Simulated scan of single mutants.
Amino acid sequence: MGEMGKKIIFGDVYRNKKVLVTGNTGFKGSWLCSWLISLGADVYGISKDIPSNPSMFLELGLADKMTHYVADVRDFESIEKIVNEVAPDFLFHLAAQAIVSFSYSEPLDTISSNVMGTANILEVLRKYDKNCTGIIITSDKCYDNVEWIYGYKETDAVGGKDIYSGSKGAAELMFKSYYHSFFKKDGVNVRIASARAGNVIGGGDWALDRIIPDCMRSWSVGKVVEIRSPKATRPWQHVLEPLSGYLQLGERLHKDHSLNGESFNFGPKSEYNHSVQEILEDMSVRWHFENSKDAYIVTGDIKFYEAGLLKLNCDKALFHFKWKPTLNYKTLIEFTSDWYYEFYKNKGDMFTYTKAQIEAYEDLALAEEIAWTR
């Protein structure tokens, strides 16, 4: 705690700083911008469209609370012009084609967005003539999943059997090659790191072919949700968990240049591995279903290849800056279910509600003495 009991979050490093977020209209991007606004940052965003309906970006009225540019990360000239106009102190690159199922119908769009989009951001940063800290966000799917039970470390092989995983692995290779070719030199004014996370849930996600959004869309109109793989197990985490990692990584890289070029995993504790069936049953309680069997039915209709369990080893982030997750499983369920319930049933002011969840998350982290609250 700082003066007069005021919380000091991420060392107050983002206050009054210009922070540019690509993919700011997406689920994670909207949460990140909301948090940065509450941290006192001057927030800018770049995205090519509003990716879902409903949209968290629109429901929170974020266009009125930040500066928003419409541009595609595949358009190098437009991105370079915006970056130079904004002159950011920090850049978080989240813009991507993020839906696995879409990568099967539109593989080239996925590759161009995730690979060339990332290369364009790195190229803009290479030519940028001011001090900047760049965090390149990829995915836990960047790893070559060989279906082992161990957590993947940052040094494990990247790649994958599907287009989405391949595109994320290739984005990491772009990051690595750009670092060694251009950003590793002494005296460089831009520092970069990459961050990997996955299985993120939370209020405000309305993407297609994701179990929680599908579930909430169905429950909001009194329908039973159809699920295809009830026994599928994932290491679920609330969206604020990896975002706390990205923001702490940005803070640490800003202060500690030895982290330049490093990659970090941000994932939940291993005991957070729960099946789809478990998580839906627990969420249905928050939606006042008397019998969870009224909440979902199993179809077994598997439309595309899905990898088995993929866990991350997060020891590196713990070692370098003592990052660890904050929420327990019960609170993860409450935060996620209650956000959607507030939106659909109570018709609340969702920016105020989202800000309150962020503050509650900060308070829980403070009580746990998580490193980024000190």
Rank of each mutant, 00 (worst) to 15 (best):
G2T: 10
T22L: 04
F27K: 10
S30D: 10
S30Q: 08
D42R: 12
V43T: 01
P51T: 11
N53S: 14
T67P: 09
V73L: 15
F76D: 08
F76I: 04
I82A: 00
L91S: 10
S103E: 07
Y104S: 01
E106W: 10
L108K: 07
L108D: 15
S112V: 11
N114V: 01
N114L: 02
R126M: 05
C132E: 03
T133A: 07
C142T: 10
D144W: 07
Y152M: 12
D156K: 02
K161T: 15
S165L: 09
S177D: 10
Y179A: 05
F183W: 11
V188P: 01
N189K: 15
V190G: 03
R191G: 04
G198P: 02
G198I: 02
V200P: 00
L208A: 15
I212L: 13
I212W: 10
W219K: 04
V221T: 13
K231M: 08
Y246V: 14
G261F: 12
S263I: 07
P268R: 09
Q277I: 12
I279T: 08
L280Q: 04
L280Y: 06
D282F: 05
S292Q: 08
D294R: 11
A295T: 06
T299C: 14
D301C: 07
A307I: 11
L312F: 09
W323N: 00
P325Q: 10
Y329M: 02
K330Y: 05
K330H: 10
I333S: 01
F343W: 12
M350L: 13
F351M: 15
Y353I: 14
I358Q: 03
A360M: 09
A371W: 07
W372I: 04
